[in-house]
Nucleic acid binder design. Structure first.
Lengths: 246, 246
DNA sequence: GCGTACCGTTCCGTACCGTGGAATGCATTG
DNA sequence: CAATGCATTCCACGGTACGGAACGGTACGC
């Protein structure tokens, strides 16, 4: 029963704020009366809300989501630093954490009129084709890279690196320079520069990035700022500063 | 069963990232084997995670939380405007939405070294003793104020207004000026200036504020900026601009 | 070292309830 | 009007959720 309720919650996707009972039942394979009852119970807990005859996810979910420690702790610590980075560069700023073979975006700041970057707060992207993902892989525990290779390197754009050898070489360069770059590997037109945030164990627990359109973003312009922010966060978290260990 | 699982999720509170099985069972009154099984199921859905022998809320909850339409739509629209406001003032910026007799904070930007304001992203405060709450009440549907009065005006500090007549008068002033203020009514030492964001129906769907320490924040300094941001958001949402309807 | 208290985990008999087909009423469309 | 689709309710049937007891492990005090 619990699994089915969670299945219903998982049926909601970005860009579809409301779903009717029939559509929810179709998507989940749960019989309509059952779905109806489960949604009623979820509604009583404010996990979903009614909008006319349709349902939408409820504010209580947002509240619980903000209690998630991996996200909350980082977000609170990082928020002022990311605001500073945003103010200094006026480009789209991200903070992402690793989860399996993917990254999850936990903070995002973008300017009015900024290009629409496909990343989404609370959204996921494969680690191997994003700058934040590469920073997390290059400075993470070896098991993280293993998980990514085992999950397979999927192609997102013609520029995605899908050969393990090429990725490995790129990650070596990231380790050497402390900076990861992305050139239309996750989405056409998108470029990104990222740096790892190291935790007390010395491995990357998050990554900071600046993203923009590939024909507009100048890595040379923002690299130092990204690196500075990542170092400030690393210091705050009690992690070892890059360059101090080589 | 579903209710009990949701009860377990609700047992987690700010400042307590991890809870053991025994504590969760104690808090919820659910027998340990039952709690153990439910947490196992929640773990399979990444709604909770194991940390040693303890549990913490899982990243999946954060992801779902970011899909909540009331929060997401506003957050995406408002983020650039709030970043601008933050950059212009370097004070703590909030965006809050109404929920019953309370407000829920859906966006917050604060500077490194900024005073610790007790508000929390994803957290709640009573509407009647916060500036954002007053803005939402003054420009909201009458039922919202009715709900607040029915819920009762609770005292949070010696300065909290708990007489309905006084609150009513204050809200009239807010309607006249378009600005709500808060002077240590929700927490000692905290001051706040807020303005309503109106939606297409002409009522307040959110409120923008700037908060700081009462002996430091100068309302005269930030009022126009808060108002400007609220108006920009109102315009973006297709709401009627204040002053244009009087 | 031993006893006590507490933890998390597993088991299984008992009691409870989750499920969905069928029926109903309503709205929309051709 | 008929057909289609929606949301809602009902209840017979089959399924499962529950928690006391037992167990092994850890930590602490005497």
């Amino acid at each position: 029963m619990l699994g089915r309720a969670l299945t219903l919650l998982s049926a909601f996707r970005p860009g579809e704020p409301e779903l009717g009972l029939a559509e929810l039942a179709r998507r989940t394979g749960i019989a309509k009366p059952t779905a109806h009852r489960l949604l009623g119970e979820l509604e009583r807990w404010a996990m979903v809300e009614r909008v006319g005859r349709a349902y939408r996810l409820g504010l209580r979910l947002f509240e619980l989501g903000q209690l998630v420690p991996q996200q909350r702790d980082l977000q609170e610590t990082a928020s002022p630093f990311l605001a500073d980075l945003f103010e200094a560069t006026h480009e789209t700023v991200h903070l992402a954490v690793p989860d399996g073979a993917e990254v999850v975006y936990v903070h995002k700041l973008s300017a009015a009129g900024a290009p629409e970057i496909p990343s989404r707060l609370g959204g996921r992207m494969p680690a191997h084709c994003t700058a934040v993902g590469k920073a997390l892989l290059a400075f993470g525990p070896p098991e993280r890279l293993t998980a990514v290779l085992e999950a397979g390197l999927t192609r997102r754009t013609p520029r995605t690196v899908i050969l393990p050898g090429l990725l490995g070489r790129e990650l070596e360069e990231v380790r050497r320079s402390g900076i990861a770059e992305e050139h239309e590997e996750s989405a056409p037109g998108v470029a990104c520069v990222a740096a790892p945030v190291l935790g007390p164990t010395g491995t990357a627990v998050a990554a900071v990035s600046i993203a923009g359109w590939v024909n507009r973003l100048r890595p040379a312009r923002v690299t130092a700022a990204v690196s500075t922010t990542a170092r400030a966060l690393t210091r705050t978290l009690g992690g070892p500063l890059l360059g101090a260990r080589r």
